[in-house]
Design a protein around this nucleic acid. Structure first.
Lengths: 223, 223
DNA sequence: AAAAAAATTTAGATTAATCTAAAAATATTT
DNA sequence: AAATATTTTTAGATTAATCTAAATTTTTTT
């Protein structure tokens, strides 16, 4: 069904998939080049190749979007990536800031059987260590409602369910502050001047900047 | 220490390592080409590249051998391969005839930390599902003494500790006959005409051809 | 030791993925 | 709507890994 793609082709599909979630619609050549740290001319070449394989829709100068087939492939790679991240954290005791690069390699191992066995071995996890949803084997992605903590209201209680930035530095910062997926926090005060927040978490009061609050995705716990 | 090598370069090192165990000394271009299903001219090109990187010793028309550095790399890939095979069989319930191709991909994931974590997670296995020894992290390979069952003596009891052919077909044949690593057998009779063996295993008497007996490595249990 | 066979290397092409520099198209500003 | 800036594509090269076909070296046979 899904033909064999090169490592590089798979990475392009994944990049386009990831970018199209934000841009809604077609993705520009420059964006892809940025995301993959390559040059726009290289992107144009690869896009043509992917278009020949019916993985993307492409009209010159108009950007690209994934076809159904392209999306299916991309989602399957994302599924692999997130399952391997769970494996690395839960079974091999890696920290959540250490797993991305390894999962980038493991995700390209192409075997449906392996993926399903791994899924079962991990007891069918629904989210990866960063709170991102793991697509099911049919490619469906459960979308939990969440909002950035930056949009929160004073006095309300929230549960942290996801991070929107998975960079090492951000994750290590969160560790240091004792902020983690699943924790409950209450917003005490929002500073009008710089939008920083005073929050209560684990019975301690801490201050976080707006930048941090934008990248913490939460859902309301109770009023 | 060990620079980054391409997938292909790693496979050449592994092939040379594997072939030099049998040939003792240097490995010929044609043998490598056969092993990797490629052409001798391609092998020559790659050998030059590996020689430039000080991974092999090479003199035109004289074959190649691994340098200390090349051997170290090859052994580390073999270590990865065998650890992943153990993982696939013990944790993901694959059968021993199903793991080779997956391990061929997993072995190239380049992370010492990952390897050591995996080793610990599997509780430091010493042998893979085919009975091949897993090199330790320093590259030492424990050599258990063994002999082909074809060389066995009548009336003696042996333990099966390794298979010398890991092809799907051979492994499936062994499954069907109830022959597995760790089983104990007694040699009842050897037919002079074709060197086939009558053996007793799990209280059943079965007949195996010389070809099979050559590929079963055993060690004596008691007289 | 000469001839024949086999193994190995070289020369020259090919494919995938990339790049730089220049050209073309689109978008933005005045 | 013209001029300018930005984005995207094309043209032509480069590198890695491979191939075929021809040339060379080594080995084996006679």
């Amino acid at each position: 069904m899904l033909e064999t793609l090169s490592f590089t082709e798979e990475n392009y599909l994944k990049a386009i998939f990831s970018l199209s979630k934000k841009t809604e619609g077609s993705v520009s050549t420059n964006h892809i080049a940025d995301k993959l740290s390559t040059k726009p001319s290289s992107v144009t070449d690869m896009i043509k190749k992917l278009a020949d394989k019916m993985l993307v829709d492409y009209k010159k100068y108009q950007g690209v979007s994934l076809t159904r087939k392209g999306r299916k492939t991309a989602v399957s790679i994302v599924r692999n990536h997130r399952l391997w991240e769970v494996f690395l954290v839960e079974k091999l005791n890696f920290k959540w800031d250490e797993v991305h690069d390894l999962a980038e390699q493991l995700e390209h191992i192409n075997s449906d059987v392996l993926t399903e066995r791994l899924d079962a071995f991990l007891d069918y996890p629904t989210h990866d260590p960063h709170g991102d949803p793991i697509p099911d084997k049919n490619g469906n992605i459960e979308q939990r409602k969440s909002e950035p903590l930056a949009n929160s209201e004073i006095g309300k209680q929230y549960e942290i369910i996801r991070v929107d930035d998975s960079s090492d530095n951000f994750l290590k910062y969160l560790d240091k502050k004792g902020i983690a997926i699943g924790k409950i926090l209450t917003v005490i005060h929002k500073e009008i001047f710089d939008n920083s927040l005073e929050i209560n978490i684990d019975k301690k009061q801490i201050l976080i900047t707006e930048e941090v609050a934008k990248n913490l995705l939460v859902r309301i716990k109770k009023q």
